[in-house]
């Protein structure tokens, strides 16, 4: 072997360094302009659609069909992002995470409506996230249904968004894929929550941002939740109330109740208001739902509730 001269060595190092640098640029350089446009829904459907008594998958299908089918939202070739609540490392029957069958049925519906790609993601809290994706049953169910799963665990997965209507939050971060998606479906599970009393659709959006701690540090967690929801609007909210967590939320383990319902709507406040009733609460008693209604995000008393 020919000895490497100093010059050759330095050249090699410089070359490698340049390659790394350029490679790094191409990956992180696509950040786009700071402050992208808020994410807004395209289609609005009046009222809520509630399916019950059929089990998670069939409830989901029935509620969506009652609403006019997934084709109303998903067009051929669309990129769909589904955001369940899979923050915790808990088994599906603990009611701390969205029922995997609800999620996988949505994936199937999107696929048959012509979606080119369906990505199921969350900012997972318990670690390691890969384990949570497996343990909650989400990964298996979604992949069998033809979707993809992702835990958005790196800061590079997020982009900054402006929140023009926000009172406390003027800008925050949002998972890049949600920003790029054609259709965004929010799939919370109905649970109690120690800090915000309940966690339903609006609160579930908190898992789309990178830095949760700053919301807790702010003057009002509830105001932050509502602020964020003004800029991050799901096209569709599907509330999983197959089994709800009555105590020790959000992580449990706690007492659960089998409700066997799936609630679907485009009005995020209406869905949450209906969800609050499942716990025997007035929507007004849950501050962040009330604030969201006052900010004009939706109605506390949905005009039509169609039960199927």
């Amino acid at each position: 072997m020919k000895p490497v001269s100093r010059r050759e060595f330095l050249e090699a190092v410089a070359g490698l360094g340049a390659a790394l640098f350029i490679g790094g640029c191409s990956k992180n350089g696509q950040a786009g302009p700071k402050g992208s446009v808020p994410r807004m829904p395209k289609v609005s459907v009046d009222g809520l659609f509630v399916a019950s008594g059929r089990g998670p998958a069939k409830n989901t299908r029935a509620a969506i069909e009652a609403m006019g089918g997934m084709g109303k939202f998903v067009k051929k070739g669309d990129f769909v992002v589904i955001k369940p609540n899979i923050a915790w490392n808990r088994p599906p029957d603990a009611a701390a995470t969205t029922n995997p069958e609800v999620v996988s049925e949505l994936v199937r519906l999107c696929k048959s409506a012509g979606a080119s790609k369906v990505l199921v993601l969350d900012h997972v809290i318990d670690r390691p996230a890969e384990v949570v994706l497996g343990f909650t049953g989400i990964k298996d169910a979604v992949e069998k249904a033809g979707g993809e799963v992702k835990a958005a665990q790196q800061e590079s997965d997020y982009r900054t968004i402006e929140i023009p209507k926000g009172k406390l939050l003027k800008s925050d971060t949002l998972v890049r894929d949600i920003l790029e998606a054609d259709v965004f479906i929010n799939v919370p599970i109905a649970k109690t929550h120690s800090a915000t009393r309940l966690t339903l659709g609006l609160k579930n959006l908190m898992g789309c941002n990178w830095d949760r701690q700053s919301w807790h540090q702010s003057a009002s967690l509830e105001q932050c939740i509502a602020d964020y929801a003004t800029a991050v609007r799901a096209d569709l909210t599907v509330l999983d109330a197959t089994r709800i967590l009555l105590t020790n939320g959000p992580k449990g383990p706690g007492r659960t109740k089998d409700v066997d319902k799936v609630i679907v709507g485009t009005d995020p406040v209406a869905v949450d208001a209906y969800g609050a009733a499942l716990f025997g609460l007035q929507p007004k008693e849950v501050s962040h739902i009330l604030i969201a209604a006052q900010m004009g995000l939706g109605s506390l008393n949905p005009s039509v509730v169609k039960t199927v």
Binding site: S194, A195, K251
Partner: peptide, 12 residues
């Protein structure tokens, strides 16, 4: 008097 119970939420 903030509504912060992050420790309670996370506790496994």
């Amino acid at each position: 008097d903030r509504k912060c119970l992050v420790c309670d939420e996370h506790c496994s």
